[in-house]
Design a protein around this nucleic acid. Structure first.
Length: 594
RNA sequence: GGUUCCGUAGCUCAGUUGGAUAGAGCAACAGCCUUCUAAGCUGUGGGUCGAGCGUUCGAGUCGCUCCGGAAUCACCA
């Protein structure tokens, strides 16, 4: 609509003032609620063509449009704003086309589809997933769905940090204190079991440090000389040397962890097309660094460590390979990026990684470009803010980490408590009930996290997290369930619920309001894709839900004469379809009843 | 100290490429269940958009300077 309106307005200016104007001067926006009209043209930028007052200019353009463009039924001018009213018949026509459209995302499709990689999750294999990972996974997965809906070819990838000193800590603690404990024997989820030994390591390590400090050593020395740390380093060296016993243990414990992660991913409803392992990409990274050294792009320090100088890029000098020749984090990320490009030839690779790594990704991009990979321009760090608790940041030392599995369970339990207290779903089997509680609990969690602008740090209050009122997932789910309920009832009454059953019917402002909001659906999907922000879409879903709820309360649907009833059924059905699609893009399931 | 990000109602958050009188929810108070699901709807109160200056017809939005908070500046990942 805006597009045709725009060209009509340009036509008007051509005819009235004999001038050509550029698109950016024709500013069209939705009319504010308190004024009459649907779209508003801001006339201020056009005054230099009309050489007239804002009021007169608005008047002239309005008259021209009303005479030459049937969709514009009327207009009014307030100060420098020309409010245009779109005819009811235009809106009805729009709505009927929307109902007929089979592909819900037809309006969102991009003109130039790209191959896009989205990396998310990126767990370490020494501890279970926590609340921060949940935000990461939800953002990444939702981004994948939104970009796909816009017609891009999107690959979901994950990089697992399965190598390094941290996993050796868990291994060592398991060797020393584990007594052969396994997930099967203990009944513990694999990632939790390994995490338990990581915590145990830190605990024992701390004791050793304290002992050394009290015997007169300074803290840094104590950290390096604690027997446990020495043993861990030996373990790492053995791993790098390929010691069979160590590698077997590493394989076994990582296997436990992966099994645990898979369960959590399944609960969250996320998955991946391709998983990369750091243990497989760090060698490629080393090769890249060494060959760049030969081409004089990098330099070697006196102690034979390898560095890159990025001072001319406004960055610093950065280590790429340790003096003993082993890889650092950056090394493997270089390797992973190249491996990905070789495999997929992406035009964009989006890294969903927390904002504490902003600097890392600036460097990664700069190094790749320096080495000579022009495609590095397509690397995008999708940086999101931390999740804080009301008491402040999550800290593992203080035991304030919110575990992902625990949280998901807690959400389900709360959903169950609330539902049962409201006395709902009495006629359902236990299994059906559990399925609905799962959808509601997770819907609450996902929506709560996704509705916030990703860039911002957010506060997550576990106690109040499952608010089922207001701007929440369950509110939207509830509205959807009610729409479904109306249709069940209609079917019982033998009413034809086919969505094309729209006859001539007089529409009121409330209906128009709903249709206008429906029109914004594909816009908000496109905007979400462009800004990499599922939050825009989430807030749109809320807006539509709120509008529909008022409609639902103000009007009866089934109790009207046939033509009105069918129209309202069609409106309800379409609202349900859009809400379902929107929430699906966010990875949120919609229950048919709740 | 350098760099990047954030600051909107008591709390949690929206606010499209700069547009009209600043938007929700929660919390508080007052109404609405014989009626398609009350996990809902309606109403009331609540603001120096961190502060100041600038750019212009117009600034929560753009620029500069402060103030406050976060992250980062590792031979950790």
């Amino acid at each position: 609509m805006e597009k045709t309106l725009k060209s009509k307005i340009k036509e008007a200016i051509r005819s009235l003032y004999n001038s050509e104007v550029t698109d950016d001067l024709v500013q069209i926006q939705e009319t504010r609620k308190d004024f009459k009209g649907d779209f508003t043209l801001v006339v201020f930028p056009l005054l230099r063509f009309s050489k007239n007052t804002p009021e007169k200019t608005g008047e002239n353009i309005g008259n021209y449009l009303k005479e030459n463009f049937p969709a514009v039924s009327d207009f009014n001018v307030i100060k420098g704003f020309l409010n245009l009213e779109i005819s009811d018949s235009w809106w009805m026509e729009f709505f009927e086309n929307l109902v007929k459209e089979k592909d819900q995302f037809a309006g969102c499709k991009t003109n130039d589809p790209e191959i896009i990689l989205v990396e998310y999750s990126s767990p370490n294999t020494n501890k279970p997933l926590h609340l921060g990972h949940i935000r990461n996974n939800l953002l990444g997965f939702s981004l994948y769905r939104i970009l796909s809906a816009c017609g891009h070819n999107v690959v979901k990838t994950n990089i697992v940090n399965d190598r390094g000193i941290h996993i050796c800590k868990s291994m060592l603690a398991w060797i020393k204190f584990g007594n052969g404990e396994t997930p099967e024997l203990s009944g513990l989820k694999g990632d939790h079991l390994v995490g338990k030994y990581y915590v145990r390591f830190e605990k024992e390590y701390k004791i050793q440090i304290e002992e050394l400090v009290s015997s007169g050593m300074n803290e840094e020395e104590a950290r390096n000389n604690a027997p446990l740390m020495k043993e861990t380093r030996e373990l790492l060296l053995k791993w790098e040397a390929g010691d069979k016993e160590v590698v077997d243990l590493w394989r076994m414990m990582n296997g436990w962890v992966y099994k645990g992660f898979d369960e959590t991913y399944k609960l969250l409803g996320v998955d991946f097309d391709k998983i990369y392992y750091e243990s497989e990409t760090y060698k490629l990274g080393k090769d890249i660094v060494l060959s760049a050294l030969n081409n004089n792009v990098l330099y070697r320090n006196d102690d034979s460590s390898i560095w890159v100088d990025l001072i001319s890029d406004g960055l610093d000098q950065k280590l790429l390979l340790r003096s003993d020749g082993t890889a650092v984090y950056m090394t493997q990320d270089l390797g992973t990026a190249v491996a990905r490009f070789n495999e997929y030839g992406f035009s964009k690779c989006i890294y969903v990684v927390g904002n504490e790594q902003n600097y890392h990704f600036q460097v990664l991009k700069a190094v790749l470009k320096k080495i000579g990979y022009p495609w590095a321009d397509g690397l995008i760090h999708f940086s999101y803010g931390m999740v804080e608790l009301p008491e402040g940041r999550m800290k593992s030392r203080e035991g304030t980490i919110v575990d992902a599995d625990d949280l998901i369970n807690e959400m389900k339990n709360t959903a169950r408590d609330v539902s049962l207290e409201l006395g709902k779903l009495a006629d359902f089997t236990d299994q059906e009930k559990e399925e609905i509680f799962r959808k509601i609990g997770l819907g609450a969690l996902k929506y709560f996290i996704l509705k916030v602008d990703p860039r911002k740090n957010m506060t997550f209050n576990p106690a109040e997290s499952i608010d089922f009122n207001g701007n929440t997932g369950p509110f939207i789910q509830y509205t959807y369930a009610r729409i479904k309920s109306v249709f069940r009832k209609a079917a019982q009454l033998g009413i034809n619920i086919e969505p094309n059953a729209i006859h001539d019917v007089k529409v009121g402002p409330k209906e128009i309001e709903l249709i206008k909001l429906m029109r914004k659906f594909s816009v908000s999907v496109s905007e979400s894709a462009k800004n990499y922000s599922p939050a825009l879409l989430a807030n749109y879903c809320y807006e539509l839900t709120k509008e529909y709820n008022q409609f639902y309360h103000d009007f009866s649907i089934l109790g009207e004469e046939d033509s009105v009833r069918d129209f309202r059924l069609a409106l309800s059905g379409m609202t349900g379809r859009i809400l379902h699609s929107g929430m699906w893009l966010l990875g949120i399931e919609m229950p048919e009843r709740m």
